[in-house]
Write a protein that binds this DNA or RNA. Structure first.
Lengths: 161, 161
DNA sequence: GTGTACTCGGTGATATGTCAACAGAAGTCC
DNA sequence: GGACTTCTGTTGACATATCACCGAGTACAC
């Protein structure tokens, strides 16, 4: 066990602003997204990778990877969106365990209608406040952090030391 | 309406890593927090400001501000924690509308037991990958972003232009 | 005072997310 | 082939978050 120092005032300020920024940013984006398009953040999160995928189809597994969600969450969300006609499920020909999620015409129209204002909002609330240099620096440190986070914090080497 | 340019590859990469970093970081922290202390992230979020408050008491409104939650979410969470004996509610003497949330002995012991490892985890997954200069730069840009996010995106000047 | 608008916290219905468990299929090793 | 493990997606029960609303109290103008 390491001797864990407390966070000092400077560190606490960073940690606070890190979480505040994410929370407020997502809240602002989602509020605006819903009022402008009727799509939730979760809807948009799934529709986007589908819309850029070939033929608007992705294997459920790959869709899950691109949004970083657990399988059950993804399955429930797809079911809800299927009811609303935004997507539909299909069988996976190459692997009988799998399933495919396909963007419907309604789904494509929905994201195409929502995207411009959403992108504009992301620019307004996020990118517009960062210089190109700051953007590059931010990408560097965030990717560094992502790449060192253990997939399972209770894996052999990490949990019992 | 502005002419909203699409995100280019560089921007999309930053936006992706920004969300990935937050999601994976919080997932890793919460998993470890729960396994080490039995407290959820939401529990910890409320217990921390209470533990540093004078006498371990805060007005519900102020507790809400310090975590940035909506009132109903806060109320539900406090109710659940009250059932488990982590906190208790009290009347607010200065304002009969208000209520106070107080840390119980059980609650204080719980967060004191959880905090060292949690802080260690925050260092391990986040601070240890940033130089002091990067930390300061990050604080600067994040605070800049937070301070420009509108409280209500549909306020008069923003929504209809 | 009285009327009005606003603040504060809570509630129940609903929406969403998580967890444990399952079934079927595919991969692996012998 | 057969035994075993892993992968994939789904489901239902449960936990948590959000939404619309209420009721009581306060602030303020008059």
């Amino acid at each position: 066990m390491t001797d864990s120092r407390w966070l000092d005032a400077r560190e606490a300020r960073l940690w606070q602003s890190y979480r505040d920024a994410y929370r407020e940013l997502m809240r602002a984006l989602e509020t605006r997204l819903i009022s402008n398009s009727g799509l939730s953040g979760a809807d948009y999160a799934l529709l986007h990778p589908l819309s850029v995928a070939e033929d608007g189809v992705l294997r459920t597994r790959d869709l899950g990877k691109s949004v970083g969600w657990e399988r059950s969450r993804l399955s429930h969300q797809v079911s809800r969106m299927e009811k609303r006609g935004l997507v539909c499920r299909e069988e996976c020909v190459s692997d009988a365990r799998g399933s495919m999620v396909r963007l419907t015409d309604i789904g494509r129209k929905a994201i195409e209608a929502a995207a411009p204002d959403h992108v504009d909002a992301v620019r307004t609330y996020f990118f517009d406040h960062l210089t190109p240099e700051e953007q590059d620096q931010l990408t560097t440190v965030l990717e560094r952090i992502v790449n060192t986070i253990p997939t399972d914090p209770c894996a052999p080497s990490t949990c019992d030391e």
